[in-house]
Design a protein around this nucleic acid. Structure first.
Lengths: 62, 62
DNA sequence: TTCAAATGTAAAAATGTCTTTACATTTGAA
DNA sequence: TTCAAATGTAAAGACATTTTTACATTTGAA
């Protein structure tokens, strides 16, 4: 599943670690999702979308 | 995670089994998600949303 | 009321996500 | 160029989702 996490994250000036902390997950989890190694749970997808001020439908493309 | 699957599904006149087939999952999976026993994967959330002509953000409420 | 269709549930196994620990590589500012 | 910060990756274990098989209950139309 492709995603625009990098784009939105850079726009906000967040590091992977900073985004991870705001989402209450590990940095490795954000890294893996951003680099498309696996998909987040639906819960985490919503958390990422909200922290980055966007929607699940906008940030993820199946 | 709450959801509006029942509402959208009834609007389309689909049974759980019909929706399941359109999403390529088992009827039990749709039943479990509709009744909030667990959350779908992000992939499946997108599939359900599309089959029901709506968005992930509209059909699921974290 | 009766009967089939629809829905609810359970348990075991397969698969996928996430954490932790640990180390390597890249990047950019001084 | 150098050094720290940021990023990439791996492996083991914990936990969550999904499938399959199977059976029970509910619902609604005839």
């Amino acid at each position: 599943m492709k995603n625009k996490i990098l784009k939105f994250r850079k726009d906000k000036g967040f590091t992977q670690d900073a985004l991870a902390k705001k989402c209450n997950v590990s940095r490795q989890t954000i890294n893996a999702i951003e680099n498309d190694r696996y998909d987040p749970t639906l819960q985490l997808a919503f958390k990422i979308a909200r922290v980055l001020n966007t929607t699940v439908d906008d940030i993820f493309q199946p």
